[in-house]
Design a binder for these strands. Structure first.
Length: 276
DNA sequence: TTCCAGGCGTATC
DNA sequence: GATACGCATGGA
């Protein structure tokens, strides 16, 4: 990791990083773009303002951040221990992934809190990203921060009506209930092999294969988790009807994020249509 | 007005 | 196990 302390800020040098591609690509829903170069958001209750200082050089400013906070918090959250250059080289053995990596080479997989990821992706089902952000925004505004399982323990489907989350409210209540009783333990789940962990999460009402995989990938950093949503269905049919290439083995989830971003933005890149 | 959104539960075969 | 359908809400 390459950084320098500059007054009360940290200047971080990280070539494989783009704020739009990482903080606003549908993996996390609490980052807000406050200027063309700046995002503000949270890991748990820790606030961060981060700006692109020099796009060409890959330099970022973490405002009001101590060296200690960088090393103990943001280093982990921003997945700075992973060499994305090396990953992109591996993935680029595949023709389509080479294009996807070139299209958005600044994607990183955030290491989010497991409960936030689980609850966020329960809310995400059959929903669109702006509305997911709206629901989560009402949730955090109501509690003053992202609510813990304990804080939600007293809520019911009816009391959560203010979220306007529709049929998903009862799924949140079921998840909270299972976590409160100890029937499900996210830390223990994270230690299980992928298939077993997915099965454990799917005991929650409203958590199917896709939401479980998103929780495993974004909330537990299981890089072999491979969420298949409507966009990835299209990508698989279009590019990989016979399965994923060998070069993504073990990091299917990271490859998935490049492909997800790529296929969603194909129209804006070269005039091709997203649908069909 | 109709369609769709980082899906899933349920019914039916 | 697979397939079809309904589901809350709101933007396009």
């Amino acid at each position: 990791m390459d950084y320098t302390v500059k007054g009360s800020d940290i200047l971080l040098r990280q070539p494989d990083f783009d704020l739009d591609e990482t903080l606003d690509c549908g993996q996390a829903f609490r980052w807000v773009k406050t200027t063309p170069d700046t995002y503000e958001g949270y890991y748990l209750n820790s606030f961060l303002r981060i700006s692109t200082e020099d796009k060409a050089e890959g330099v970022f400013r973490l405002h009001n951040t101590s060296e200690n906070e960088l090393l103990n918090k943001w280093y982990n959250y921003l997945d700075l221990s992973t060499d994305y250059s090396e990953l992109k080289r591996r993935f680029s053995e595949d023709e389509t992934l080479a294009k996807a990596c070139a299209f958005a080479g600044g994607i990183r997989i955030l290491r989010q809190d497991s409960w936030e990821a689980l609850s966020s992706f329960i809310i995400s089902q059959n929903n669109n990203i702006p509305r997911i952000k709206g629901i989560i925004g009402r949730l955090t505004e109501h509690y003053g921060s992202y609510p813990t399982v304990e804080q939600l323990a007293a809520e019911t489907e009816e009391s959560l009506a203010f979220l306007r989350s529709g049929f998903r409210a009862k799924y949140l209540v079921d998840a909270v209930s299972r976590l409160t009783t100890g029937e499900l333990d996210l830390a223990k789940t994270a230690a299980l092999p992928l298939a077993e962990a997915q099965k454990a999460l799917m005991n929650i009402k409203g958590v199917g294969p896709k939401v479980a995989m998103c929780t495993l990938l974004f909330g537990m950093h299981k890089t072999d988790a491979f969420p298949i949503d409507v966009w990835m269905k299209r990508a698989l049919e279009k590019w990989y009807p016979n399965g994923l290439p060998e070069c993504v083995s073990g990091c299917e989830g990271i490859a998935q994020q490049y492909l997800f971003h790529y296929i969603r933005n194909l129209g804006s890149e070269n005039g091709q249509q997203n649908d069909s």
